[in-house]
């Protein structure tokens, strides 16, 4: 979880990747309008497919996007 933005996701996920890999928490860089945050998200250990869960996308992430847009 990024302390500044509150972005990130630590919930259990039952999704598996189509490549056969398991999803595990990974460090991910999130970019928007020239800003960069380091956050933790579930990603496939084999192919690197990053999951952005719905709750995060329509919740905190949307909120941060709007804050950055108004900066």
């Amino acid at each position: 979880m990024n302390k500044k933005t509150g972005l990130g996701f630590h919930g259990e996920t039952s999704w598996r990747c189509s490549c056969g890999g398991e999803l595990a928490p990974h460090k991910v860089a999130a970019f928007y309008l020239g800003n960069r945050f380091e956050i933790e998200l579930p990603a496939c250990s084999q192919c690197g497919f990053i999951l952005v869960p719905e709750s995060l996308a329509v919740g905190k992430m949307l909120e941060v996007e709007k804050i950055l847009e108004d900066k």
Partner: peptide, 8 residues
């Protein structure tokens, strides 16, 4: 979402 994610 509009943010872009990159695996580190």
């Amino acid at each position: 979402h509009r943010m872009v994610m990159e695996l580190m």
